[in-house]
Amino acid sequence: MRLLTVSGSPHLHTDQSVSKIMYGVVFSLIPAMLVSFYFFGLAAILVTLTAVVSCMAFEFVIQKYLIKGPLTIFDGSAIITGVLLAFNVPANLPLGLVVIGSAVAIGMGKMTFGGLGKNPFNPALVGRVFMMISFPVQMTTYPEPTAFSTRLTDVVTGPTPLTLVKDGVSRGVGISELMPQLPEYTQLMMGNMGGSVGEVSAIALILGGLYMLFRRIISWHIPVAFLGSAAIFAGIFWLVDPQVYVDPVFHLFTGGLMLGALYMATDYATSPMSRWGMIIFGVGCGLLTIIIRLFGAYPEGVAFSILIMNAFVPLINRAFKPKRFGEEVKNG
């Protein structure tokens, strides 16, 4: 007869597991993936595939030969890192660079610290920022979106809306004059603009985000705080001088803000634990993003702002504890 088991309570467990959550995230990224494949064609597919495969390969090699620990490459986290890394680079980035980025993301960003859950910085962003600084030209040459194309070379490149605004403003051109050059808002939401592989379509990303919220993979706190604070902060400047500062709606739907707020900032390991902590974290990300966008050297600041706030997470965890039961005595 089989032996009875003795263990501590509880004797039930949810059907949730790390890998189910991770594959849930991957699933929620599918709409954004499809949009990017539509606009950037075969190149986007290749970049995404390369990033995913090389991330998994690097994790396998490091776990098997360097750490000699248990293998976790199929828990889905490496796939997410790969997809998010690919989403953060231009579609026409040479594939060799994608591999280097993956190596940095997994090797430096994740495994150095002990693997999943122990990394202080979002691995995909570590990879992206590494490449941004090391290969600035390739990383800022964005292809123009076209309906599905199979061309890998000689693609038409052009500036992203954010670069257009930044350059224009620095040359002293007013926003109203720049407006005709920019895509319409509906186009921005659909994703018909220059940019990194997966960041362009706000609609698809929001769809994925809603799925994650529905499945309770993420909570609303970080995205809402991030997007809200970015919108409010950008809005204040816009009200001050609409000729120099572009309106908040434009900020929300351009660049990597949606992707960052829904997928990068909500990364479990690198975001705070308590709800108030999450809100502070989100607000910090939002403020820094707008500051970098408006006053920094780079047109886009989502990646940097999230990484900077990642560094504050341990402090936030210490400072913002959840509300304990029985702390405030109410006798009503």
Partner: peptide
């Protein structure tokens, strides 16, 4: 020989508080 099987945190401190042993 074990009569039951223990499952959970691999620490004697907890197993001790739970039962007399496998």
């Amino acid at each position: 020989p074990p009569k039951v099987r223990y499952e959970g945190a691999m620490t004697c401190a907890f197993a001790h508080s739970l039962f007399s042993g496998e």
